[in-house]
Simulated assay, not measured.
Amino acid sequence: MDIDVWIKGLGSKFTYVAEEQGKIIGFGELEANGHIGRFYCHKDFQRKGIGKKILEQLESKAKALGIEKLFTEASSTAKPFFGSQNFIVVKQQEVERRGQKLINFIIEKKFNNY
């Protein structure tokens, strides 16, 4: 992984970070097209509302920008969380990362911007 490329990529996105006592416990990023590029919650803070609060910030920013749909590629473990937040599965896909084949799900959530 090229850390410089990764850091530069963060600069072109809207990134929200949750921290506790100076420790990052979660983050999420929104791209201008509605794609959630990275979304993470530390294992010790899962099921405590951290992910939901981060997602609420992403949704609020998306609505303010006039984005009509959020979408991402969710892992099997992240899929239930997003499902609980009214995302729907568009399709299942197989991807290759560092020589490993993984299953993930393209999911989306549409807004009514009226």
Rank of each mutant, 00 (worst) to 15 (best):
106 I>Q: 12
27 F>M: 04
107 I>D: 01
105 F>R: 07
29 E>Q: 11
47 R>C: 06
95 V>T: 12
82 F>E: 06
21 Q>L: 12
67 I>L: 10
103 I>K: 13
110 K>D: 01
22 G>M: 02
14 F>R: 11
69 K>W: 04
26 G>P: 05
95 V>K: 13
31 E>A: 08
103 I>H: 02
21 Q>I: 05
66 G>N: 11
48 K>S: 03
77 T>H: 10
55 L>D: 05
78 A>Y: 07
37 G>H: 04
36 I>D: 04
46 Q>A: 01
105 F>S: 03
107 I>K: 02
90 V>L: 12
7 I>K: 11
22 G>R: 04
79 K>A: 06
3 I>C: 00
92 Q>E: 14
6 W>T: 06
74 A>L: 08
10 L>F: 09
73 E>M: 08
36 I>H: 09
42 H>T: 12
91 K>P: 00
33 N>T: 07
59 E>G: 08
107 I>M: 12
51 G>Q: 08
59 E>N: 09
98 R>A: 15
60 S>A: 15
83 G>Q: 15
110 K>R: 15
26 G>I: 03
38 R>N: 12
37 G>C: 03
31 E>P: 01
20 E>Y: 14
66 G>D: 08
46 Q>W: 07
43 K>E: 14
17 V>F: 03
111 F>V: 09
35 H>D: 03
63 K>S: 04
13 K>M: 02
92 Q>W: 00
25 I>P: 02
107 I>W: 04
13 K>L: 01
65 L>V: 03
34 G>M: 05
109 K>G: 03
18 A>Q: 04
5 V>D: 13
76 S>Y: 08
84 S>V: 01
66 G>C: 08
28 G>T: 03
11 G>Q: 05
4 D>W: 02
61 K>H: 12
112 N>C: 06
112 N>K: 15
8 K>T: 07
63 K>T: 12
40 Y>L: 00
42 H>N: 11
60 S>I: 12
87 F>V: 03
24 I>C: 07
3 I>V: 15
111 F>G: 08
10 L>D: 00
41 C>W: 05
17 V>S: 00
85 Q>N: 11
13 K>F: 00
33 N>H: 06
4 D>C: 01
45 F>V: 03
33 N>K: 05
51 G>Y: 05
54 I>K: 13
56 E>P: 09
36 I>N: 04
68 E>M: 08
73 E>C: 13
92 Q>T: 12
79 K>R: 15
52 K>R: 15
101 K>W: 07
79 K>N: 04
75 S>I: 10
13 K>H: 07
3 I>D: 09
91 K>G: 00
74 A>Y: 07
62 A>L: 04
1 M>R: 14
85 Q>C: 10
91 K>L: 04
108 E>T: 07
26 G>V: 05
87 F>T: 03
1 M>H: 14
6 W>R: 10
77 T>F: 14
109 K>N: 06
10 L>T: 00
1 M>W: 10
74 A>W: 02
79 K>Y: 10
96 E>G: 09
81 F>M: 08
86 N>P: 02
43 K>P: 06
51 G>L: 06
27 F>H: 06
102 L>P: 02
68 E>W: 12
112 N>Y: 13
60 S>V: 09
108 E>D: 07
39 F>Y: 14
53 K>S: 13
113 N>L: 15
52 K>C: 07
10 L>W: 08
72 T>F: 11
96 E>W: 06
84 S>P: 05
77 T>I: 14
79 K>C: 02
